[in-house]
Design a protein around this nucleic acid. Structure first.
Length: 327
DNA sequence: AACCCCCTCAACCGCACGTTA
DNA sequence: ATAACGTGCGGTTGAGGGGGT
């Protein structure tokens, strides 16, 4: 690995910063072990705050932004070190097929991994592998509207690796965010990309909220794949109701446990724009498996609060329409 | 041993967005 | 209303390591 830059005296690695009329020299470049210690000690003692204050109070000649990055990407104690497992790799590919380059959202579903780490891994390893896979498997009859050949290759690779799972997952997301009469759903059905399931297939529930598909890897390296609904104050996993097989989850890890939202606090953190579930995920044996803290952003259904997540579904539909028939 | 090339990944940059004064 | 500031995100860069010749 790269060695940290030596003493602070190297002017090449210093930038000027105005602070209250005083010009400070801000350090740039690699962090030294001493700087790491300072930041780590400060964070352990004082916790989070304004990053520019942290930089100043910790005695670091760094801008707050640099401190934040260092903490998030390297010093945070809950970071997982080491190479990505094949399971993580597969999940990243799957999530990327759903979310695109939304690295922070992908990272939110891989505990201990940072967006930067995943982005680097994608760009250096996975992208290359998928390209290779695409060049081996791409059919000349495949028609794509996308103008990006790289994109075509990557998508071809995804299909060859994951068969229809990404399309099904997209559909699962869609069913939670649109009514069954949505033109988007109809388009997918007409393209034979999905079976015409509707929310009513889930039973007689009258859910006040449907959550986005949750996929991730728990602390034990076990992948989970679930969808959640909330009704009557309860959070349920409805994966099996929709007939979608979970991703390699052993039987005793099927998350069918219903959690009473009022029993655990805080369970939902929300404001006018976003709602985020902070939830413990349990398996059938009621062993805690995973703490979920993302995935419900902007996808409340009911009343006037219907929100359509942050991704461009029409764009997703165009992508889906260009997929070859799965027959 | 020396050189070159490629790869990895830490860190920076610019931008967007939210909050506050 | 808006300027200033803080934060977060995704794209990009380049130092340094490793492998090949």
């Amino acid at each position: 690995m790269r060695k940290p830059i030596g003493g602070v005296g190297n002017h090449k690695d210093l930038i000027s910063s105005e602070n209250g009329g005083i010009t400070m020299k801000m350090r740039k470049g690699l962090w030294s072990p001493e700087e790491d210690d300072k930041l780590m000690n400060y964070m352990i003692t004082n916790g989070h705050g304004c990053w520019s204050d942290i930089a100043r109070n910790a005695g670091l000649q760094r801008c707050g932004k640099s401190c934040r990055l260092r903490w998030i990407n390297y010093l945070r104690p809950d970071l997982k070190r080491g190479a990505f497992s094949s399971q993580e790799e597969e999940l990243i590919i799957h999530l990327h097929s759903l979310l695109g380059n939304r690295w922070s959202q992908i990272a939110a579903r891989l505990p201990g991994r940072t967006d930067n780490e995943i982005k680097n891994f994608w760009n250096s390893t996975i992208k290359k592998r998928l390209k290779k896979s695409a060049s081996n498997s791409a059919s000349p009859n495949m028609s794509h509207d996308s103008s990006s050949s790289e994109h075509q290759e990557v998508m071809a690779g995804l299909i060859s690796i994951h068969d229809s799972s990404n399309i099904m997952a997209m559909y699962m997301d869609a069913t939670r965010q649109y009514s069954s009469s949505s033109s988007a759903i109809q388009a997918m059905t007409m393209n034979h990309l999905i079976e015409p399931l509707t929310l009513s297939d889930a039973g007689d529930h009258h859910a006040s909220c449907y959550g986005k598909t949750q996929v991730g890897i728990d602390g034990n390296g076990v992948s989970y794949h679930g969808c959640y609904e909330i009704f009557g104050g309860n959070l349920n996993l409805v994966d099996e109701i929709f007939g979608i097989p979970p991703l390699d989850i052993p039987n005793d890890n099927q998350y069918t446990k219903t959690e009473n939202l009022h029993d655990r606090n805080p369970m939902i953190v929300s404001n006018n724009m976003n709602s985020v579930i902070i939830n413990q995920c349990y398996n059938n044996n009621t062993h805690k498996v995973q703490t979920l803290a993302a995935g419900f952003e902007n996808c409340w259904e009911g009343g006037n609060d219907l929100k359509v997540e942050e991704w461009d579904f029409e764009e997703l539909m165009r992508e889906a329409s260009s997929f070859p028939s799965l027959d």
